[in-house]
Design a protein around this nucleic acid. Structure first.
Lengths: 156, 156
DNA sequence: TTATCTGCAAAGCCTTTGCGCAGAT
DNA sequence: ATCTGCGCAAAGGCTTTGCAGATAA
């Protein structure tokens, strides 16, 4: 759960951003975004749907999906798993990092030694057991950057 | 592409592991694994299917999926995107890291300051543009660890 | 020979899309 | 009043499943 101060701040940002982009401030959108903003458990669309349903029984799953998409485009939301479209496989069993292109979703291996060692400065929450760790680098790959110079600034 | 020395090594390991687990060493499996092991581009099942098809035109996509699953269970393969089943959302737009439970797929936020700063010691490949970076920590969450003590060793 | 695997086809999610009515600006 | 968004239902893509014939052990 999220503190109510942070929630208020997020909802205010949401309201402002809707106005900025000319997005209609509908009841459904407000409830959907509040469900997202008050969670720190990285819910699925289905999970949001279930929660929103308690307040708006007539809500449809399609509306939830459409708005998640809208919010993501508006920069109000991020996908935790950029590569969720389809399974991606790796036969390289050694430690290495991944660079994921946000445009074309290509994954490029980055050798372990090219990144400063991942080190926990604080222990994990009680009872958590770490198996392994890697860096996920997000950006634009060379061929996408070449084909769309705007992307090179990192200001999307 | 992968050097032929590494490919040979991977294929040998594959053969040995099949024997070890009593997996039938079929032609299809060999070709499928070779397609995986000779790529460093993290192909999708569909991509593997297309490639294998050139050598075994009668191969079916179902067989590719089944074997990918078998290989993953055997530890011969890893999924790049553990969370590909369904979209996961994050309304926390600040920098933070993620701990992903390999059992239940729960995602837990790790504050940015709890991990040593992610720093590139080597530049990215030419033309690549970095937007942001985060650590992906894989392991078992507290509630899964509690319900299955075996997992606490990290030796799965 | 016996157990396992393959190919095929059907079914099962998750997600997107199109359309007519309802609601926001 | 106009434009955008919502609910519904159908369709689309990725993945899994069941079964009969084929192949490895």
């Amino acid at each position: 759960m999220i503190s109510s101060a942070i929630l208020d701040q997020r909802m205010e940002h949401f309201r402002a951003r809707c106005a900025e982009l000319g997005l209609a401030y509908t009841h459904q959108r407000m409830i959907i975004y509040r469900a997202l903003a008050s969670s720190d458990s990285h819910p699925t669309p289905e999970g949001i749907f279930e929660q929103v349903r308690r307040e708006i029984p007539s809500i449809s799953l399609g509306t939830v999906y459409k708005n998640i998409h809208t919010f993501t485009e508006a920069g109000l939301l991020r996908e935790v798993n950029l590569l969720h479209d389809s399974l991606r496989l790796d036969a390289n069993l050694g430690n290495h990092h991944h660079f994921v292109c946000v445009r074309c979703k290509a994954v490029t291996d980055i050798p372990e030694k090219d990144v400063a060692p991942l080190r926990l400065k604080h222990p994990l929450p009680d009872g958590f057991v770490l198996h392994r760790a890697a860096a996920e680098l997000l950006g634009v790959c060379a061929s996408c950057a070449a084909s769309e110079p705007d992307l090179q600034t990192g200001s999307s």
